[in-house]
């Protein structure tokens, strides 16, 4: 029951880097990034997809998808099962190579996003099926999110060279910060695999946030969690943007939560983008209503919410 109650737990004293301090540093961070943008001329979207198409053995999963995500927004991509949402996220994170089209991450454009360099480009993601490192403690899971910053070779790590120690200390401080921010302090020494589902999802979010990504991709963050956890998780997602300055793209099956959370929503159906706009625009879009309520998809979506 830690999951449900952690949100109201008093933060424990001495060790806690207070969650309140995070926004300050994060805001400074965001301001810096904005400056860079202004310096380089016109404002670029954090993420842009141009004309992305993907098929598996002749079956089209994505067709001519265009999408732009502006700095600091929470962008949802919704659609019925099999609409291509996961494929879209996997194209953005480079796990799939699109047949056609380009992915822009800031000013860099890719035909096939290099997965191994995502972190350097300031992109982090979570997975639909839990992808925590079960055998590592919660703290070590979070530390993994900044693994790419460890530049010291393994011999220096063994010997504890000044460089290795400094990076380790910085990473640990960053991890403690996120652990406090997401109220994971109580469980931070436990092996992640032993935690309840909702809490593991939060560990994954912490692992993605610790590097303070420019762009955070969330793959069905609300799938499989209880209603109480849903509201809590939604608050965490909003905080991730407000306090950590991350631009967020989330794909979701359950539209109810998404409508209240997102700034803009894109709707996929059969691999095509059928609508794109504010939640209100999308809600009243005839094509969307057809896709969700039409005979073809009898889904259990909570559209009325």
């Amino acid at each position: 029951m830690i999951a449900a109650s952690a949100g109201v737990l008093p933060l424990d004293g001495a060790l806690v880097e207070p969650a309140l301090s995070a926004p300050l540093s994060a805001r400074a961070d965001v301001a810096d990034r904005a400056l860079v943008k202004r310096g380089s001329g016109e404002i670029q979207p954090v993420l842009a997809l141009a004309d992305i198409s993907l098929s598996f053995g002749g079956v089209a999963a994505l067709r001519d998808i265009d999408l732009e995500v502006a700095q600091g927004e929470i962008r949802a991509v919704i659609g019925p099962n099999g609409a291509g949402k996961s494929s879209l996220l996997n194209v953005i994170s480079g796990l799939y190579r699109p047949d056609r089209g380009r992915v822009w991450l800031g000013e860099h454009s890719f035909g096939h996003v290099p997965t191994a360099r995502l972190a350097q480009h300031g992109v982090a993601r979570t997975f639909q099926n839990l992808a925590v490192f079960k055998g590592l403690s919660v703290r070590d899971n979070v530390l993994m999110g900044v693994a790419h910053r460890v530049r010291a070779g393994f011999l220096r790590q063994i010997a504890g060279s000044p460089l290795a120690r400094r990076i380790e200390a910085e990473n640990r401080a960053a991890a403690e910060d996120v652990i406090g921010f997401l109220h994971l302090r109580e469980v931070c020494d436990r092996a992640a695999g032993t935690l309840p589902y909702g809490l593991q999802k939060r560990v994954e979010l912490a692992r993605a946030l610790v590097a303070r990504p420019l762009l955070l991709l969330l793959d069905e963050p609300f799938a499989g969690v209880t209603l109480g956890e849903k509201h809590e998780l939604a608050a965490h997602v909003r905080n991730a943007r407000d306090s950590y300055g991350a631009t967020i793209v989330l794909i979701e099956h359950d539209i109810g939560v998404v409508m209240g959370l997102s700034d803009r929503v894109a709707v996929l159906d059969y691999g095509r983008k059928i609508a794109d706009g504010t939640p209100d625009q999308v809600r009243s879009d005839q094509a969307v209503v057809d896709a969700y309520l039409g005979v073809a998809h009898a889904d259990e979506t909570e559209f009325a919410l």
Partner: peptide
């Protein structure tokens, strides 16, 4: 895969 995405 998660390790790869993180940058390991």
């Amino acid at each position: 895969i998660a390790a790869k995405v993180i940058g390991v």
